[in-house]
């Protein structure tokens, strides 16, 4: 009797191990396919020009062969002329712009999203559902279509004047059009709608205003969703490319994404200095990785628990 049990146990164990192996192999493959581009970026950043073009490609470099020149060259300054002393690749300026834009866009988006989602989920006003339907309909329109109208808006606001554009205006032009997202409003509204009406009544009876209810009750309850929105939005802002290039008259105002594309291409040959480009990419990715690892718990919670219990 006990032997049969032991046998079963063994068979079960074997099955479980086999299952685990399959799962781990699958996970390992997925992880590798995600990591390869990162590995290649880092590897390329340590190669010199001939190593990059070598066929067959070099798959690994021992640390003693690492060329740090791609990194050090990033911080070279213009040797002569009126711009002498300025960095060849204004890495820190681009990073500062990117961080600022991401921050402003995200704060702005979060505020408008919370307010609108609240209005559309809790407040009763005439035409609310029609208005919401209209907003949802705009989601059907590809974002590129808005580029022109947004550009005209920015121009009419006087924020895009190639002769007079200031840094502040460039920042406004880059951020304001992206401070609202219908998708996020929809997303948060769904979460808000899951919050039972009674909580609203309870809070009313407990003496809160609508705004205070939003701030003290709904926002904390919907925090996982809001965190998700913040993450998605800042990622979007971080990698924005077309718009920042379009509404800034001066490349000093642009973002690191724009810098990465153009700065390492030899204008006369059209060839790209991949080593430097990858070195710069590593430096750009680094802050994101640091942020991710620092806030890993919060981010995972936000992404995995986007619903709330009623």
């Amino acid at each position: 009797m006990s032997e049969i049990f032991v046998q079963n146990e063994k068979a079960y164990k074997r099955k479980r191990i086999a299952g685990n192996i399959t799962i781990y192999i699958f996970l390992a493959l997925v992880a590798i396919s995600i990591l390869i581009p990162f590995y290649w970026m880092i590897l390329t950043s340590f190669k010199n020009e001939t190593q990059i073009t070598q066929i067959p490609p070099i798959l690994a470099l021992s640390p003693s062969d690492w060329k740090l020149s791609n990194y050090t060259d990033l911080f070279l300054t213009v040797p002569s002329g009126p711009r002498a002393g300025e960095p060849l690749f204004p890495f820190f300026r681009y990073m500062a712009n990117t961080v600022l834009i991401s921050l402003l866009t995200t704060v702005g988006t979060t505020i408008t999203t919370i307010l609108s989602a609240f209005a559309f989920s809790r407040l009763n006003f005439k035409g609310r559902d029609t208005l919401f339907a209209v907003l949802l309909a705009t989601m059907m329109v590809p974002g590129e279509i808005f580029i022109l109208t947004n550009f005209l808006t920015i121009n009419k606001f006087g924020w895009y004047n190639i002769f007079t554009q200031t840094y502040g205006q460039a920042i406004l032009a880059m951020t304001i059009p992206f401070m609202v997202s219908v998708f996020y409003i929809f997303y948060l509204r769904q979460t808000f709608k899951q919050i039972p009406n009674e909580l609203y009544f309870a809070a009313k009876v407990d003496g809160t205003s609508d705004f205070k209810y939003l701030l003290k009750i709904m926002v904390p309850i919907a925090m996982p969703t809001i965190v998700t929105i913040i993450i998605l939005n800042s990622m979007g802002a971080w990698s924005a490319y077309i718009w920042p290039a379009l509404v800034t008259a001066n490349d000093k105002y642009r973002l690191v994404s724009n810098g990465l594309r153009g700065a390492f291409t030899d204008t006369s040959t059209g060839r790209t200095d991949y080593g430097q480009q990858m070195a710069a990419s590593v430096l750009v990715t680094l802050p994101l990785l640091i942020v991710f690892f620092t806030f890993r718990k919060q981010i995972m919670r936000g992404v995995s628990r986007s619903g709330i219990k009623g």
Binding site: P196, E198, L199, F201, A202, A203, K204, V205, D206, G207, T208, K216, I217, P220, I221, M223, I308, K309
Partner: peptide
Amino acid sequence: PEKRGIGLVFQNYALYPHMTVRENILFP
């Protein structure tokens, strides 16, 4: 409602899920 001086208890309690019992009671 907030000026009527009423206490209201709901069928599903409508407690604020993100607050502790103390905070729930303190809230009003």
